[in-house]
């Protein structure tokens, strides 16, 4: 292990770009987790499974529509919606009856969803991994200081700000966003003025899960779609949400940035144990700000 021998300025820049596109995925997934945490005050353990389902659905839909750009775009739109639909059914059918219970019960219920979802994925898609490729104009790479940078990553870099803007618009400029933010602070108050809190929760939950599905759909062309891809992402999303501040979407952005960059730079420095670097960053952040970088909503 001769680390740090192959670091050049260009490689560094390339890794930063890779890290930033990784950040996009992380941000999309963890902002969904954070949204649910902020309003429902539960870490949705099933978030990772929904991400995985999003990826598998993207593969299936793209394969069904046929190769080419059209199938990809259709899949990118439909797969997250499918995930949202699934979460909506689970929320209205089962989850919403538990809102009066202790937090631990709610958390365990999301865990039971994880167990069920994961085996359903195994049942439907089997244990093999799947992979598919992005349409032609997103394939290949272009040069950055003489090193290749995948086009698809550039696409991700464009999507990230778009989603961030959408979330900002949703939470700050729409009625439901404002109500949800108020419900995060004081749900009794919101209930008292005659708003159906249960439906606010449902909407938040579904939007959060949609983001998990979107993350899964976007990540699908970049890696193998496998059983177990849920575990890594949920742990990462947990960490991001913790350092960002529970329930704070901009905290999730900040946390995803820290996580994505330390992770990709870590690969450059010490490939086998690159995973250590984001954790070290997390522990350092928490030593100074035990409640996360930005103000949590509760």
């Amino acid at each position: 292990m001769d680390f740090a021998s192959n670091i050049t300025a260009a490689a560094l820049f390339q890794q930063v770009l890779v890290g930033l596109s990784r950040t996009t995925i992380l941000f999309i997934v963890s902002s969904g987790l954070s949204l649910v945490l902020g309003v429902l005050r539960i870490p949705n353990v099933a978030h990772g499974s929904l991400y995985m389902i999003g990826a598998f659905l993207t593969y299936t839909i793209a394969a069904a529509v046929g190769p080419g750009a059209f199938g990809f775009w259709i899949a990118l739109v439909l797969a997250p919606l499918g995930v949202a639909l699934l979460s909506f059914a689970a929320e209205r059918g089962l989850f919403c009856h538990l809102y009066e219970r202790e937090h631990l019960m709610l958390l365990l219920f999301t865990f039971s969803m994880t167990l069920v979802f994961n085996d359903l994925v195994k049942l439907i898609w089997g244990s093999d991994y799947r992979s598919f490729t992005a349409p032609g104009f997103l394939q290949g790479s272009f040069d950055v200081f003489g090193l290749p940078f995948p086009r698809y990553n550039l696409f991700l870099l464009l999507i990230g700000p778009l989603v961030a803007f959408g979330l900002w618009f949703l939470t700050n400029r729409t009625k439901i966003g404002k109500i949800a933010r108020a419900a995060a602070v004081d749900r009794e108050m919101v209930g008292a003025v005659g708003i159906n809190v249960s439906w606010i929760f449902a909407a938040t939950f579904v939007i959060g899960c949609y983001l998990a599905g979107l993350g899964g759909a976007l990540v699908a062309p970049t890696q193998n779609i496998t059983q177990g891809m849920d575990h890594t992402i949920i742990i990462e999303a947990f960490l991001i949400v913790i350092i960002g501040g529970l329930g704070n979407i901009w905290g999730a952005l900040l946390g995803a940035l820290i996580f994505g960059l330390t992770d990709s730079l870590g690969i450059l420095i010490w490939p086998q144990f690159a995973i250590v670097f984001p954790y070290v960053a997390v522990v350092i952040v928490l030593l100074f700000r035990p409640k996360g970088l930005l103000k949590s909503t509760w």
């Binding site: 005050r41 870490p43 937090h103 958390l107 742990i235 947990f238 960490l239 949400v241 913790i242 529970l246 086998q272 144990f273 995973i275 250590v276 954790y279 997390v282 522990v283 928490l286 030593l287 035990p290 409640k291």
Partner: peptide, 29 residues
């Protein structure tokens, strides 16, 4: 020492995350 200053959910989530690091190390080493 790292987690105990945090309350309930924070505590639990951070514990899951840090524990996963221990797992990942055993998994890769």
């Amino acid at each position: 020492l790292i987690t105990v200053r945090l309350t309930k959910l924070y505590f639990g989530m951070l514990q899951i995350s840090l524990g996963s690091l221990v797992w990942a190390l055993a998994y890769r080493w």
